[in-house]
């Protein structure tokens, strides 16, 4: 029996444009945010998101349901393209564009309080800068675990490394960021 995602893929393969539209709508925001988390730039993320979906559309036939979930497959395709892009460009700025402009577009109304809002902006800035200082492996593991909320096994499948390696990378990444936080607290005497 086919699952929901498999049916959707089947429909896409039979030329159902509405089904493809559903896929784009369902994963568009996620892929865009994933790209942003790797690149820290909204303009690059938009281009990358488009390229990722073009690749997904062209390679839809290569998806095998028995090999894993459709979401994992999409994220793997996205991750590979982002890595390719990273290798081509060889550098990502740690922060891109205006923080203020980006924060305005944050889809979160949980912090109507200005002070809380400022704290969140400060925290997100720290995380972006902190992630930028990590090695690509540690950064990727943290992005997929903490921001994408993927399981260890999914991350292992996407990154094609053993699950133990994933756990180790995540732990090391967290420790590095916590150390950065310590330094920052010691330097500024403030807590985020």
């Amino acid at each position: 029996m086919l699952s929901g995602d498999e049916k959707l893929v089947e429909r896409c393969l039979h030329g159902d444009e509405a089904a493809w539209e559903l896929v784009v709508k369902a994963y568009g925001k996620r892929i865009y945010n994933l790209s942003y988390r790797y690149t820290n730039r909204t303009d690059v993320s938009e281009d990358l998101t488009q390229d990722i979906f073009v690749r997904i559309y062209r390679n839809l036939r290569s998806y095998r349901a028995e090999a894993g979930s459709f979401q994992s497959w999409i994220l793997k395709v996205a991750r590979n393209l982002i890595i390719d892009h990273y290798r081509q460009s060889r550098r990502y700025p740690q922060t891109g564009g205006s923080d203020l402009l980006e924060e305005i577009r944050i889809s979160d109304d949980r912090a109507p309080d200005p002070q809380r809002c400022a704290e969140r902006v400060e925290a997100s800035k720290f995380l972006r800068e902190g992630l930028g200082t990590l090695s690509p492996e540690l950064r990727e593991a943290l992005i997929l675990r903490e921001l994408e909320g993927l399981s260890y096994s999914d991350i292992a499948e996407i990154c094609q490394v053993p699950e133990g390696t994933v756990k180790s990378r995540i732990n090391r990444g967290r420790i590095e960021l916590a150390k950065l936080l310590m330094k920052r607290s010691a330097r500024t005497g403030m807590k985020v």
């Binding site: 568009g28 925001k29 865009y32 945010n33 942003y36 988390r37 909204t42 993320s45 938009e46 998101t49 980006e102 924060e103 577009r105 944050i106 889809s107 979160d108 704290e119 969140r120 902006v121 925290a123 997100s124 720290f126 995380l127 972006r128 903490e146 921001l147 967290r174 420790i175 960021l177 916590a178 150390k179 936080l181 310590m182 607290s185 807590k191 985020v192």
Partner: peptide, 18 residues
């Protein structure tokens, strides 16, 4: 700090694409 860090991930921006 590690525990503080855990609570900070929620602050990471979730962007609305155009």
């Amino acid at each position: 700090e590690l525990q503080t860090l855990q609570s900070m991930w929620d602050c990471y921006p979730v962007l609305e694409p155009d």
